[in-house]
Design a protein around this nucleic acid. Sequence first.
DNA 1: TTGCTTTCTTAAACTAGATTAAGTTTTTTG
DNA 2: CAAAAAACTTAATCTAGTTTAAGAAAGCAA
Lengths: 189, 189
Amino acid sequence: MYQPLYNHIKRFVDLSADEEEILTSTLKSFSFKKKTFLLEQGQICRSNYFVVKGCLRLYFIDVNGVAQTTQFAIENWWISDLTSFMFQKPSDFFIQAAETTEVIAIAHQDYEKLFERIPKLEKYFRLIFQKLHQASQQRIMFLYSFGAEERYRHFNGLFPGFVQRIPQYMLASYLGFTPEFLSKIRTIK
Amino acid sequence: MYQPLYNHIKRFVDLSADEEEILTSTLKSFSFKKKTFLLEQGQICRSNYFVVKGCLRLYFIDVNGVAQTTQFAIENWWISDLTSFMFQKPSDFFIQAAETTEVIAIAHQDYEKLFERIPKLEKYFRLIFQKLHQASQQRIMFLYSFGAEERYRHFNGLFPGFVQRIPQYMLASYLGFTPEFLSKIRTIK
DNA sequence: TTGCTTTCTTAAACTAGATTAAGTTTTTTG
DNA sequence: CAAAAAACTTAATCTAGTTTAAGAAAGCAA
């Protein structure tokens, strides 16, 4: 049930059978059909999600009423609205299943407790957040580096095949332009 | 010498006298004059920096040869090029003192060792990176939310006074537009 | 206190990408 | 399978912000 997460944790720290049991009694596993919302604007983000299979997207609705995708999470990535999760305050974001998706969730009320019972997890999450922050640094650099068309081509090179998994309008907003523009650059070359 | 950092750590975890001593023997303290480079493109980022006083900026040179500021660090913030720091590979970034700045540095070769000697620091840095990642999520949302002028006004509201501390061209690139444009919107209203 | 360097301003011409709007294709669902 | 809904395309028009260029201030070193 939780094996994919245990395997992921074991890439970074050891995990005893006892510790696995504690986790097993704390974690929750869910399957969400495509388009299901795990979080909606105004709700409090109650969990941090680990994607076992499928794809989630984090987005918000901008001042013009347009959905802006700020993050995707695929296999072995964690996702949540950290501002809402950390402070348990209403979120500005939506988290939605871009495909039918299996997740493992840690609820907020269990989160800090879990670190007390399994201190090793501090290291695991320190490394996870270190990596997430590194990914954010790269993403911001990438957004500032290139024009819209180059961002598309570069992204395609980094994640070949991912483009087929999601609707173009989600990718367009993630890359910071309109679906119409994406449509245009796809036909020219 | 390292007291500002110890105070900061103690906001999140306890720190014994012994542990302070270990830190004291490991950390390094520096003062950098305005415009000094702590890291240059092509070099390996050897340290993670804690700003005691002053301001550092992280930037890179884009394809058009223009400097793009992706992060500022002021008092009590950590900064480094994580991609370069984590993998000890040449950096795409510069880290430069925007003001004369006092920092406390953890060298890469001491970094993972330090966690072995003071496991508590795992929690501290887990929380630091959690917060940094949260800040990145907010920043990306902010970049996608508004037009250029609104970004400037919003930033000014969030960090009143900071605008006076740094040259406008640094702020302009951080906010994602040109210095000329910033000059324009400052005069109109 | 002068000269040199860095930063800021102004304004005209320009362009990458947005907007709008209508039509087409694909996917989903009953 | 048929109908409806969702996703994609195309093209004309438009605009927020860039580029270029030249001059004015401000900061700093000698």
